[in-house]
Measured scan of single mutants.
Amino acid sequence: TETYKYDDKREAEKAAEEFRRRGITVTVEERNGTWVLESK
């Protein structure tokens, strides 16, 4: 599991889209005002 942090929800979702395009499952969730993207 890799974790990436973003200040902006849009950025996180854009990154998530890129991962999914490569066939990687990711989750995006907000933690304490930071958007956390996790690849499984």
Rank of each mutant, 00 (worst) to 15 (best):
V28S: 01
E30R: 08
E30T: 04
V36D: 02
R31I: 13
K40V: 13
A12T: 01
A16W: 03
I24M: 12
E2A: 13
S39F: 15
K14E: 11
R31T: 05
A15R: 05
V28W: 03
T1M: 13
T1Q: 11
F19P: 00
G23S: 02
E13T: 05
W35R: 00
Y4Q: 07
R20G: 06
D8M: 04
N32M: 05
E30I: 08
E18T: 05
R31M: 08
S39K: 14
T1C: 13
A16I: 05
T25H: 13
D8Q: 06
D8E: 06
R20D: 04
E38W: 10
T34G: 12
E29I: 15
E38C: 13
E2F: 15
E13M: 12
R20L: 10
G23V: 00
T25D: 13
A16N: 01
T27H: 09
R31E: 06
E29N: 08
F19E: 03
Y4F: 11
D7V: 12
E29T: 15
K9S: 05
D8H: 07
K9E: 08
G33I: 00
R31C: 08
R21S: 08
K14I: 11
E13Y: 11
T34N: 09
V26F: 07
Y6G: 01
V26W: 02
K9H: 08
R20E: 07
L37H: 01
V28F: 04
Y6L: 02
K9W: 10
K9C: 06
D8R: 04
T1L: 13
E18W: 12
T27I: 11
R21C: 08
K9L: 11
K14F: 08
G23Q: 02
V36G: 02
E38K: 11
E18L: 07
G23N: 03
A12D: 00
E13D: 10
R21A: 09
E11P: 02
G23M: 01
G33W: 01
E11Y: 04
D8F: 05
T3V: 13
E13W: 08
A12L: 02
G23E: 02
I24L: 12
E11S: 11
T1W: 15
R10Y: 12
Y6R: 01
Y4C: 06
E29D: 05
T1F: 14
T1V: 13
A15Y: 04
E11T: 10
E30N: 10
E2L: 14
D8P: 01
K40L: 14
K9I: 09
S39H: 14
T3G: 09
D7F: 14
T34I: 15
A12K: 00
A12C: 07
A12F: 01
E2V: 15
E11D: 11
E13N: 05
E11G: 05
W35K: 00
R20N: 08
T34Y: 15
T3Y: 13
R31Q: 09
I24W: 14
R20P: 01
T3C: 08
G33S: 03
K9N: 03
E29G: 05
R22W: 08
E29Y: 15
T27R: 08
R22S: 05
F19R: 03
E11N: 06
Y4K: 09
E29H: 12
I24A: 09
E38I: 15
T27M: 09
T1K: 11
Y4W: 14
K40R: 10
T34M: 15
R20K: 08
